[in-house]
């Protein structure tokens, strides 16, 4: 086959919704786009462990402690599934981690915001995981097989995350005055960063068109953002919290909520590294990785020694036989 016929074959598969698998021919840019997107996604899970991990040691009940620990652990698992999916494209996990640590690879900006009170655990589960699920459910049908399969697993596990977050918010909203205040304060701080999670407006999103054509992406940033706002506003109302957007209003004509101006200046600044916790997050990851180096080396050294020992034993056995 010529490159042209490879390309035709690939285009046909995409057109007919046939998954692309690791050993199939694929255009270089498709591969690069996937590596970038999947590794960013994996990094987001791993960095995302940090803001919530903050509160594992301070959770207010043993039940909450277990739930939060299990949830943050799940995020580690999700990072692992995603790194594995990216590895099928020919990049190693260590390389991806290097890219994260050097600042070359990005991760979701939301995790550069601080978790200040316990209510932030509720807000993150409800809003951040809620937004993530909006993004992720369509990815279960993304065109690259290993990515789609990883996302199926992630989405299956993720469903408890949003529910536990909403449950925390609900408990606070039904609680004492100070608890209500805590819940509202968390919603105030996390609302805008959450709706920024869907990324820049379609007009300013350079990769969207190509990604949609390749069926990597299924919906545009703005479509998903609108969907998220429509469902979340109702959920806030249900527990008596107020979404911090004075311009929020139901639009009969469109059947959606209109909402206020997003502060894209803030968004791009956080992306560029000027968020409140960018430095801390990256430093925490670098520290864990660097301090773990001798541990990883030791395990490899031991495995090699054991292999040699086993080989020697086998040889002796066969000589005496």
């Amino acid at each position: 086959m010529t490159t042209k016929s490879f390309q035709e074959h690939f285009d046909n598969q995409i057109e007919n919704e046939v998954s692309i698998e690791p050993r199939d021919w694929m255009p270089d840019d498709y591969r690069k786009t996937l590596i970038r997107q999947i590794s960013q996604h994996a990094h987001s899970e791993i960095v995302g462990m940090l803001p919530e991990g903050n509160w594992i040691t301070r959770a207010p009940s043993l039940r909450r402690k277990c739930v939060l620990l299990a949830k943050v652990q799940d995020e580690g698992g999700h990072g692992l599934y995603l790194y594995s999916a990216a590895e099928t494209l020919g990049i190693s996990r260590d390389e991806m981690i290097e890219q994260l640590h050097s600042g070359k690879a990005k991760y979701s900006s939301i995790f550069n915001y601080p978790t200040i009170t316990w209510a932030d655990m509720g807000a993150i589960g409800w809003l951040v995981d809620g937004a993530a699920i909006m993004n992720q459910v369509p990815l279960c049908r993304t065109s690259y097989g290993p990515y789609a399969r990883a996302m199926v697993r992630v989405c299956k596990e993720e469903s408890f995350h949003q529910r536990q977050g909403y449950e925390i918010m609900m408990t606070l909203a039904n609680g004492t005055e100070v608890q209500k205040k805590m819940a509202q304060d968390a919603l105030n701080r996390w609302w805008w960063p959450s709706i920024m999670m869907f990324g820049p407006s379609d007009a300013d999103s350079p990769h969207t068109a190509q990604s949609m054509k390749w069926r990597i992406k299924r919906f545009s940033n703005d479509e998903l953002r609108q969907k998220f706002i429509d469902v979340t506003v109702e959920q806030a109302k249900l527990i008596g919290l107020t979404v911090p957007d004075p311009n929020l209003k139901w639009n009969e004509e469109t059947g959606h909520f209109d909402f206020g101006e997003i502060n894209w200046d803030e968004f791009w600044n956080v992306v560029k590294g000027n968020g409140p916790c960018n430095k801390e997050r990256l430093q925490a990851r670098q520290k864990a990785w660097n301090e773990g180096a001798w541990v990883r080396e030791a395990a490899i050294a031991h495995a090699q020694k054991s292999k040699l020992k086993a080989a020697k034993n086998n040889k002796q056995k066969s000589e005496t036989a």
Partner: peptide
Amino acid sequence: REAAGGENTHHDTSNEW
């Protein structure tokens, strides 16, 4: 890595599990 079309950087993976 080559068959998979990975980037051809000289990355030392000898310590990677």
